[in-house]
Amino acid sequence: MRRVFLANNTNELWDMLRQYPEAAIYAGGTDLLVRMRKGICDPSALICLERMDCLKGVREEGDQIFIGACTSHTALLADPIVQRSFPVLAAAISRLGSPHIRNMGTIGGNIVTASPAGDTLPPLYILGAAVEIMSMDKTRRLSLADFIRGPGHTDLKPGEILAGVWIKKDQPYNIFSLEKVGQRKALAISIASLAALLRVSGEGIIEEARLAWGSVGPTVTVSKEAESFLAGKRPEPGALGEAARIAMDAVSPIDDVRASKSYRRLVSGNLVLRLGASVDGNSPQPAWLPPAD
């Protein structure tokens, strides 16, 4: 018989963790329970965080937004701050799983699972997100890129939980694009994805670009080279084509049952070509961000 604990607050949680240090911690269970059913893991006890209200919700603190780790994807999609300030994140979440998975799954779970295909990760990378990690006696913060170590591996140590994510509120970009390539439109694990944030001047020049690819490497792939190449250029086929070539060199995809390495590499580049359409407003997922105050 496996014991399942439901923590209502941090005091209860630290007690449970002291008694059952080997317990697996989860919130919605959309990753962990599937892995357990498949027999990939078999934890001796489970600690569920879904009743910990202190880990839920979105709030502003100074120039930062804090998103509690146990906030469900559905709650994030409905949140006005997320809709207004981080539409690239909202777009990624809207393609995550299906309504029922978004109802159960949380942003913290998506981060801690650290899947190469984690849908929230590419937008969080380009938004410069930092994670807040909590243990019984201290709280620490580090960048998401440093937190995620590899497929399924994070910097989380025994006795620690992910408390939430910090994102700077005013992002200096006016265009976003989010494209996920999966085997179908819902309930799909990403084959390749590209999250992009651009600041395009009134004259149509890219002043700054942030790009992150999902599912084409052990963790999220970023390319400083592609980003700096695009800076100062118009989002036209020639420049985008060159950035696409840089991207194809930057990614390190694998073959799996969903797609081949070569398809992933090709699509990683091709998605860059569509950024021009995002700027023109013709893409299915384009949007202008509101001007930063």
Binding site: V34, S98, Q183, R184, A186, L187, A188, I189, V257, R258
Partner: peptide
């Protein structure tokens, strides 16, 4: 467009509905 029971020397590589892809209503 998407349904394909993949096998490798008789062993099914799409053993569940997460890997064997049937269309959803929005597809």
């Amino acid at each position: 467009l998407c349904e394909e029971l993949k096998t490798d020397r008789g062993v099914i590589r799409t053993p569940d509905l997460g890997t064997y892809i049937i269309p959803t209503s929005i597809d």
